[in-house]
Amino acid sequence: MAQQAMEGTLEQGRRQMTELRNWAVYVALLPAALIAILAYVGTVIWTVWISFTSSKLVPVNAFAGTMQYQRLFADAKWQISISNLFFYCSIFIVVSLVLGFLLAVALDQRVKAEGAFRTLFLYPQGMSFIVTGLVWQWIMNPTLGLQRVAIDLGFAGVKLDWIIDPDLAILVLVMAGTWQASGLVMALLLAGLRGIDPQLWSAAQLEGVPRWRYYLHIVLPQLKPMLITATILLTLAGVKVYELVIAMTNGGPGMATEVPTKYIMEYLFRRANVGLAMSAATVLLITVSAIVVPYVYVQYFRKPKPRAGA
């Protein structure tokens, strides 16, 4: 769905644009151009430049080579932030994809009350990460939350105090993140499923293909464009994770849920080490650009070619 809403490649645009010329369009595009150049390109250049200076409390223009980067990668907190993010993203992406796919397939079986289920799976998308984080924090409260329910039900040995367990706290973040994101995966894949020719299933049935193999070997490959979009959106959402951490754990216990975005914010505004923060931001920029630039190019700027199921 996001895919469809965002489709319409530039090729379509070009066909029309060649036909109309008007000087006014340059004036019209001026505000957007200023924003693109100053607020996006300009800030990025400035951020990258600061990362190569010895700036501390305020930015200074003293070139310092890769000093900030050496400090950054020597910092245990940054290393932990990166490994936490890697762990969070991999589980978050896999679980959201699997759950979203299962929900989409389940909803595509001509079920009753499909609309009600869809509404239920999608409403978390409209919530603030702060709200999501605070509610899950309360549900996972180590004394009054789920843990207490388990004890009341007679499972005294079950440990559900994950949010204060350094090894498991990040899974609570994953749970909240997945709760919020898998509805969107469901919606994307459901739109894809609805584009598949029903005849395929009839043909598969004639061949005696069982249902699970039909979905695994025939449907899944057809959903590839939607799966790619979903994976990229989830990856970007994963890398950006910040508010959820602030609301739920504030990085703790210890450094168990520290993430790079929070690291940057801390060194910018609390620990006043701008150069270090900007080197961390640059690392994040390079990582995300490696995913985004090819995606945006393929999605919007490449000449469209006919695709299955689209």
Partner: peptide, 28 residues
């Protein structure tokens, strides 16, 4: 609907920018 030089560049910058974590733009 209109043809303008550089319009695609502006559009491309905005699109890529939409995906970058905000912390990259914040301090400047």
């Amino acid at each position: 609907f209109w043809k303008a030089r550089g319009a695609e560049v502006i559009f491309g910058i905005l699109l890529v920018g939409a995906f970058i974590p905000y912390q990259v733009f914040l301090y400047p």
